[in-house]
């Protein structure tokens, strides 16, 4: 885990320093002044020395000061932005999981009926339309033309609905499709036939046997899906004017804001690794076979 982080930090550090330009390059800076600014922020030192200094600060939990927003520390920026992004992401995930699983389950049980087709149509739209188009369209139609929801800003629950739906739609679609396939597969298994033969009620079969087993493969893809939501948050936060963390990791690269690039990368890497760990744990809880294996060890 620490080794992984070290690799990520090192690779990012040297990769970003190989991009042409630096934080202080602008069309209105003279070479002399630029060199002076680089010196002030320690960017004139040999690269390996900067690297050692950075690692030292990192060990103390200090991400340094942003080189674009010269008055703000990267720690502050993450502290301010992450809760917003997390809220947006969790809401999106909540929509995606509940609606996605519901649609998928219905489609699976009502295989080849209009319900199935409707659910899969929604899912395909979610998969096929890029986030920036979906977000823009929703904003224009639902926000401006219909006036149902606020166009942008981040002032309360009403403001979160549209961006969260736009962000979660892709994940929702994947969820629905996987759940449908999974339900179809499980209902064909012998133990379901056994359960039926035992005379269990339909309700019991659905909840105790089908869903419980069908949900297993879904849990495994939660990790990558969460990563997809993190990635998508950039576009959605941009379109809806949300003060989250998403926009930093694109802007920081264009600004050559070295400390912010590293800060966001490390932060997201830790987050993703942590989420993957959570998924493993969740998988263990849901899948009795793994639980058994663990207890035997």
């Amino acid at each position: 885990m620490l080794a992984a982080l070290w690799v990520i930090v090192t690779a990012t550090f040297f990769l970003m320093h190989s991009i042409p330009g630096d934080p202080f390059l602008s069309d209105k800076v003279t070479e002399a002044i630029r060199q002076n600014m680089l010196r002030k922020y320690g960017l004139d030192k040999p690269l390996w020395e900067q690297y050692v200094i950075y690692l030292g600060n990192l060990l103390r939990g200090d991400f340094g000061t942003s080189l674009k927003m010269l008055h703000r520390s990267v720690n502050d920026m993450i502290r301010d932005g992450f809760p917003v992004s997390a809220l947006l992401g969790l809401e999106a995930l909540a929509y995606a999981v509940t609606i996605g699983l519901l649609l998928g389950t219905l489609a699976g049980f009502r295989h080849n009926t209009w319900l199935d087709y409707l659910a899969m149509f929604v899912a395909l739209i979610g998969i096929s339309v890029p986030g920036f188009i979906m977000g823009g369209l929703m904003q224009y139609i639902i926000g401006l033309k219909l006036g149902w929801l606020p166009i942008a800003r981040w002032e309360g629950f009403r403001y979160t609905i549209m961006p969260a739906v736009a962000l979660g739609l892709g994940t929702l679609a994947v969820m629905a499709r996987m759940m449908r396939t999974s339900v179809l597969e499980v209902t064909n298994q012998d133990y379901i036939k056994t359960a039926k033969a035992k005379g269990l009620s339909q309700r019991e079969i659905v909840f105790r046997h089908v869903l419980r087993n069908a949900i297993l493969p879904i849990v495994t893809i939660l990790g990558p899906l969460t990563a997809a939501i993190v990635t998508g948050s950039f576009v959605i936060e941009l379109i809806f004017g949300i003060p989250g963390l998403g926009k930093y990791y694109v802007q920081s690269i264009f600004n050559r804001d070295y400390t912010l690039i590293l800060g966001t990368t490390i932060f997201y890497a830790i987050l993703l690794v942590f989420l993957n760990f959570l998924v493993d744990v969740a998988y263990g809880i849901v899948d009795p076979r793994i639980r058994l294996m663990r207890s035997r060890e």
């Binding site: 990563a227 694109v250 993703l272």
Partner: peptide, 22 residues
């Protein structure tokens, strides 16, 4: 698989953008 896990932990979009600019 450890190596794969590391790569899995990097947000793909950051790598892609960094790489494209580099």
């Amino acid at each position: 698989m450890r190596i794969v896990d590391i790569l899995y932990g990097i947000p793909y979009i950051i790598v892609a953008i960094l790489l494209l600019v580099v």
